[in-house]
Write a protein that binds this DNA or RNA. Structure first.
Length: 547
RNA sequence: GCCCCCGUAGCUCAGUUGGAUAGAGCAUCGGUUUCCUAAACCGGUGGCCACAGGUUCGAAUCCUGUCGGGGGUACCA
C-alpha cells in the first residue's frame, strides 16, 4: 500500500517516455542494503522495446515526479533494477497512518462486494473434535478474518453429517452404554463406536430423561438417533467456543433431505444424460471431468452414496449467493475433490466456485519421538485435551505456523515451554513490552503523542528503518495472505516484527528524561503495538498487556 | 498403477506467486543487565535449495523426467 505513490509515479514516467506496461511491481528487495523498494520495470520494458535496460532505467528516474523528501536516493543496480531509498516524508506518513489507523490499520477494501463462505471443521457428529479438526478450526477461522480484513463478507459454516448410516450405529452404541450404566450385559455393535466418551453421552442423556430405560426398544433407539447427535454436536460447539471459534451456522444434512434436495440433484444428473445403470447401481460419468473412474451415485440397494447430498449441499450454498465457497477438508477426503467438481460441472456449475483446501494431518512430537495418538495410552487425541495441555493461544499459533497443505509436526515440548523459545510468547512478549513501556512512561508523566503533533525526525532515519518498513508492509501482507488463503504468512511476519522491535528496544532508550526522543520513540512503539495487536487478533490469539 | 502433498543449514521450517550475495528459530561456540520487562539482545560456526535436463536477461520458485518420504485411491460418510 505504501508503494502506491511510487508505483503511480513510475507509471506516469513510463507514459512520459512513450512506453507502455501492464503492471508495475514495486517490492521490498530481499537484501535491505539495496534500498527500501525495488522495481524491475526497466528490465521488462527493455525487453519489449529492445533497449538497454540500464539506460532506460536512467531515463525513468529523470522522468519521476515525487513529493519533497519522499525519496532520498534512487539508483540503478545489476542488470537494470531500480532501487529507492525512502525519505523522511515517507517514513513519517507510514507511522502516522499506523497509529491513527489503530485497529483498522492493515485492512483494505479490495474484497468489498464479495460474499464468501468458508466451511470448516464439519466433523462427524459421532464424537469429540480431534486434532485435525482443531487445526481446521484455527486455519478456517483465520482465513475468515483475513478475508474480512480485505472487505469480504464472510460466512462461517459447519456441516453436520447427521443423515448417514453412522447415525444408526451411533444410536446403538449409546444404547449399549446405557445398558452398561444399568449394570446389564452390553455389547458395542459391529462397526459401532467404542470410544469411552459415549459413556458420558449416555449418562447425560439418562440424566435428562430418566425414563429412557423404560421405553420400548424401537422407540428408544429412534430417540437416541436424534438425542445422541444433538448431545455430541453441542459438545463440539462448546469445544470450539472454548477455542474461540464460532460458526455463523450449523447446517444439518437432514435439512437437505427434508427439502428434497437430494432427489432433485439425482433427477438433474439423470436428465443430463451422464448417468447409467451397471450391476444394479446408478453411475455418474465423471471420468471425462477428471476422475480416475466413474462414480456410483445410487447403490444397488437403492441408497444414494455421499456424493449426492454433498453436491446438493454445495448447490444449496451457491443458491445462497456465496462465490466462491471455500471448504476445508481433512486429508482423507482428498480423493473426493475431483468427483465433487465433476458432478458440479455436469450440472453446469463452474468448478472454480468450490475451492477446496486440504488440511493435512498433525503429528505430535514429544522427546523427539512421534506420539501415537491413542486414548489408551492417555495421549492427546481431542481438541479439548490439547487446550488443557498447551492452552488456546499456543495451540492456535502452532497450527498457524505451517502451510495448512503440509503435514505439521507439532512439538509438544516446545509448546509447553513458557520461555523465550516458544514463538508464541516471543510475539506476545513484544506486545506486552510496549504496553509496559507506555505504563512506565505514564508514571514519568509522558504519553504517546498525537499523530498530528509529534515530531518524528528521531525515528525517520537509519535506526528505525527496518521496523518502519515492516509496519508499512503489513497491509500488503494481509491482502496477500487472504488472497492465497495462507494465514501462516502472518505468524511468520509477526515473529519478524517482534524480533525487529526487541532489537530496536535494546539499541535505544525509549523512555528517558529527554522529551525530544521519548515522544517519537513512544509513538513508534505504539505503532508496533498496534500492528502486533491487529495481527494477533486476526489469528484469534490474545495480545496481553502484561506478562 | 493412478492422484495429491512434501524434499532448502545437524533439527523444525520461512522464502512475499520468476529477481540481485538463499533466511529465521532451535542446537552449537562466544559475548551483553549500575539502564524503560534478560520471556530480551549482539556475534561466530553451519548450504551442490534431493538429482538430471528444459524454459529466459534471471529459477529454490515454472515445465519434463528420476529418486526418496507421507497421505489418498469403497456400491462408508
Amino acid at each position: 500500500m505504501y508503494y502506491d505513490e511510487l508505483t503511480a509515479a513510475l507509471e506516469k514516467a513510463v507514459t512520459k517516455l512513450g512506453l507502455e506496461i501492464e503492471h508495475i511491481e514495486v517490492m521490498p528487495p530481499r537484501d535491505p542494503s539495496h534500498g527500501d523498494a525495488s522495481t524491475n520495470v526497466a528490465l521488462i520494458l527493455a525487453k519489449k522495446a529492445g533497449r538497454n535496460p540500464r539506460e532506460l532505467a536512467a531515463e525513468l528516474v529523470d522522468a519521476l515526479e515525487l513529493p519533497e523528501n519522499y525519496i532520498d536516493s534512487s539508483d540503478i543496480a545489476g542488470p537494470g533494477f531500480l532501487n529507492f531509498r525512502f525519505g523522511r516524508a515517507w517514513y513519517e506518513s507510514v507511522l502516522r497512518d499506523v497509529v491513527s489507523g489503530g485497529d483498522a490499520y492493515g485492512t483494505s477494501d479490495g474484497g468489498r462486494g464479495k460474499n464468501i463462505q468458508i466451511e470448516f471443521v464439519s466433523a462427524n457428529p459421532t464424537g469429540p473434535l480431534n486434532i485435525v479438526s482443531a487445526r481446521a478450526a484455527s486455519v478456517g477461522d483465520a482465513i475468515g478474518t483475513l478475508l474480512e480484513a480485505t472487505g469480504v463478507s464472510v460466512q462461517r459454516e459447519d456441516y453436520v453429517n447427521d443423515a448417514g448410516q453412522q447415525v444408526g450405529k451411533l444410536a446403538l452404541s449409546v444404547d449399549a452404554r446405557l445398558k452398561e450404566l444399568r449394570g446389564e450385559p452390553f455389547e458395542i455393535p459391529e462397526g459401532g463406536y467404542h470410544g469411552e466418551y459415549l459413556k458420558d453421552v449416555a449418562a447425560s442423556l439418562l440424566a435428562a430423561k430418566p425414563d429412557l430405560g423404560a421405553m420400548p426398544d424401537k422407540e428408544r433407539i429412534a430417540y437416541l438417533r436424534e438425542a445422541a447427535i444433538e448431545n455430541i454436536v453441542a459438545g463440539q460447539r462448546a469445544d470450539l467456543e472454548a477455542f474461540g471459534v464460532t460458526h455463523d451456522r450449523w447446517f444439518h444434512e437432514t435439512e437437505l433431505a427434508e427439502a428434497g434436495a437430494v432427489e432433485d440433484v439425482l433427477e438433474k444428473l439423470k436428465a443430463s444424460g451422464e448417468t447409467y445403470e451397471k450391476e444394479g447401481a446408478t453411475w455418474l460419468r465423471t471420468t471425462p471431468h477428471g476422475t480416475n473412474d466413474d462414480k456410483v451415485i445410487v447403490k444397488s440397494d437403492g441408497v444414494p452414496t455421499y456424493l449426492l447430498p454433498d453436491v446438493a449441499y454445495h448447490i444449496n450454498k451457491f443458491d445462497r449467493g456465496y462465490d466462491p465457497v471455500i471448504d476445508l477438508w481433512g486429508p482423507d477426503h482428498h480423493a473426493h475433490i475431483a468427483e465433487t467438481h465433476a458432478a458440479l460441472e455436469i450440472l453446469g456449475y463452474l468448478k472454480e466456485r468450490l475451492e477446496v483446501q486440504i488440511i493435512q494431518q498433525v503429528n505430535f512430537i514429544e522427546g523427539g519421538e512421534q506420539v501415537k495418538m491413542s486414548k489408551r495410552t492417555g495421549n492427546i487425541v481431542t481438541l479439548r485435551d490439547l487446550i488443557a495441555d498447551v492452552g488456546v493461544d499456543v495451540a492456535k499459533f502452532f497450527f498457524l505456523m505451517r502451510k495448512q497443505s503440509a503435514h505439521l509436526d507439532f512439538d509438544l515440548d516446545l509448546a509447553r515451554e513458557q520461555t523465550d523459545e516458544n514463538p508464541v510468547f516471543y510475539v506476545q512478549y513484544a506486545h506486552a513490552r510496549v504496553s509496559s513501556l507506555i505504563r512506565f512512561a505514564a508514571d514519568k508523566g509522558a504519553s504517546v503523542p498525537a499523530a498530528d503533533e509529534v515530531d518524528l525526525a528521531d525515528v525517520s532515519g537509519e535506526d528505525a528503518r527496518s521496523l518502519v518498513l515492516l509496519l508499512a508492509d503489513f497491509p500488503r501482507l494481509i491482502a496477500g495472505a487472504a488472497e492465497a488463503r495462507e494465514p501462516h504468512r502472518l505468524t511468520t511476519y509477526l515473529r519478524e516484527l517482534s524480533a525487529a522491535f526487541h532489537s530496536y528496544y535494546h539499541g535505544h532508550q525509549i523512555v528517558s528524561d529527554d522529551a525530544g526522543t521519548t515522544s517519537p520513540r513512544l509513538f513508534l512503539s505504539q505503532a508496533v503495538k498496534t500492528v502486533l495487536g491487529n495481527g494477533l487478533r486476526l489469528l484469534g490469539i490474545s495480545a496481553p498487556e502484561r506478562m
